[in-house]
């Protein structure tokens, strides 16, 4: 336990050291605030509205994240069970993936307005591909002998799916979830850039118009923390669900 505590202490120490250096550098070289505000200036720029903007962005990205993953997993299940659908639709999925989200975002706002839904869809679009690809791969990753075992004992298709394919694919699914936690935030913020009146992307954009760099910094940091939070939650779930493999990677 103490070793674990020590391990988590290191990043905290490094972060503190970095912040102190930053503060000192800004003061020592008298860097103007609109270029680089000191950490203390950023902190004093934080007010209650940042919190509500953060909740908006977090809500949009989380909704997009969850919907995309459900939809992606279901699509993957259909792909695995039907070769023609997989062959016909995979190129479309790749085309969707290669279309830059930034190019699509204005269209989404035109279609869906400046509210919640255009951001959710932007977030979904960007999260959809990783889960689709990984689930397809994971659902197909069963050992041949395991399939033979199920067949020997007259396992039904349904049993093969629930008791073999799905658990086998869990590690693949979780690695997609981890990738898309940060993507989900990107999607929501890009959506907010294009047209919104709340959310962290909106704050970043507006503060850039006013050269209010401390506020901009606070919103950037808040968005990074949102990503970290999602990543951390998914990591916890992964540890709980996939106890049989050791994943030390990020």
């Amino acid at each position: 336990m103490t070793a674990k505590l020590k391990d988590s202490l290191y990043p905290v120490l490094f972060a503190l050291g970095f912040l102190i250096l930053w503060e000192l550098a800004v003061r020592l070289f008298a860097i103007p605030m609109y270029l680089l505000p000191a950490p203390t200036q950023v902190v004093s720029a934080i007010d209650g509205s940042l919190w509500s903007h953060t909740l908006v962005t977090l809500g949009e990205s989380l909704t997009g994240f969850i919907l995309a993953n459900i939809l992606g997993l279901v699509t993957a299940i259909i792909f695995v069970h039907s070769k023609p659908i997989e062959k016909g639709m995979f190129p479309l999925a790749i085309a969707l993936k290669t279309t830059p989200l930034v190019a699509l975002a204005p269209l989404l706002v035109v279609w869906l307005g400046t509210g919640y839904s255009s951001k959710v869809i932007a977030s979904m679009l960007i999260c959809f591909f990783p889960i689709l690809v990984n689930s397809v791969k994971g659902l197909k990753a069963i050992e041949y002998e395991a399939w033979e075992l199920f067949s020997t004992y007259k396992g039904t298709k349904r049993e093969i799916f629930w008791k073999l394919r799905l658990p086998t694919s869990l590690p693949y699914i979780f690695s997609a979830l981890k990738i898309s936690t940060s993507l989900a935030i990107v999607g929501a913020i890009v959506g907010e850039f294009v047209g919104a009146n709340k959310g962290l992307g909106y704050v970043v954009l507006v503060s850039s118009y006013h050269m209010d760099t401390p506020v901009m910094f606070s919103a950037i940091i808040a968005s990074a923390l949102c990503g970290l939070l999602l990543f951390w939650v998914v990591g916890l779930l992964e540890k709980k669900f996939i106890f049989w493999t050791r994943s030390d990677d990020l």
Partner: peptide
């Protein structure tokens, strides 16, 4: 059938693994 590899499900305990074929079908 006993395969070359044990082919145990890593998410099931030894007991659950042995119960698996009894509950299929």
């Amino acid at each position: 059938m006993v395969f070359q590899k044990p082919v145990l499900m890593p998410w099931l305990s030894a007991l659950q693994n042995v119960m698996l074929p009894l509950e299929l079908g």
